[in-house]
Amino acid sequence: MPMGVPQPVPALTTIATPTLWLVAIGGLVLLLALDLLLTRRPHEVRMREAAGWSVFYLILPVIFGGYLWAAHGGGVAAEFFTGFVVEKSLSVDNLFVFMLLLAAFAVPAALARQVLLYGIVGALVLRAVFIWLGAAALQSGTWAFLLFGAILIVTAGKILKDVLGGHEQQVDISSMRSVRLVRRFVPVTDGYHGARLTVREGGRLALTPLALAAVAILGTDIVFAVDSVPAVYGVTEDPFLVFATNAFALMGLRALYFVLQGVLTKLRHLNHGLSVILAFIGVKLILHWAHGVWDWVPQIPTLASLGVIVAVLTTVTLTSLYANRRDRDKEVAG
Rank of each mutant, 00 (worst) to 15 (best):
E87Q: 13
T142F: 14
S178I: 15
W143C: 07
G165M: 04
V226D: 03
A156I: 06
P301Q: 13
Q261W: 00
T317A: 09
H193R: 11
P187Y: 08
V9K: 14
V129S: 03
F240L: 02
M251T: 11
A123C: 04
L133A: 14
A110Y: 11
L160T: 07
L38C: 06
L313K: 05
N271A: 11
A51C: 06
F148W: 04
V332L: 08
S89A: 09
F243P: 04
V259S: 01
G4F: 11
G122S: 06
L210F: 10
H272P: 01
R183K: 12
D172L: 10
F105T: 08
L147C: 11
F81W: 13
A16T: 11
M176A: 08
V215W: 14
A16H: 10
F96I: 08
R183G: 03
V259D: 01
G282K: 04
Q114L: 08
F130C: 09
L306Y: 02
L278Q: 08
S305E: 03
R46I: 11
Q169L: 05
G273C: 07
K158V: 10
P61H: 08
Q299G: 11
V55Y: 08
E331S: 05
P301R: 11
W69G: 00
L126Q: 15
V23R: 01
L101A: 10
L270G: 07
V283T: 13
E87I: 01
P18D: 06
H269T: 06
T208V: 02
A128P: 07
H43W: 04
L264Q: 01
G165R: 00
G191M: 04
A51D: 00
H272W: 09
G149D: 05
G26E: 12
R204S: 08
A71H: 02
T142W: 10
N324A: 09
L101T: 05
G66A: 07
L34A: 12
P108S: 05
I222P: 00
L60I: 15
S89F: 03
L181F: 12
H72K: 02
A323H: 02
A109Q: 14
V283F: 12
T19P: 04
A333H: 05
R196F: 08
T14V: 07
G292Q: 12
Y118N: 10
A195I: 00
L160G: 03
G75Y: 06
L124C: 11
R46T: 14
G26H: 12
L287K: 08
V293W: 14
F80R: 09
V86L: 13
Q170D: 11
L218E: 15
D327E: 15
I151R: 02
L160P: 07
A135L: 00
V171R: 04
F80W: 13
H291M: 09
F80S: 02
R325H: 13
D162C: 06
T198I: 13
G66T: 10
M176K: 05
L321A: 15
D295M: 12
K266E: 01
L207W: 13
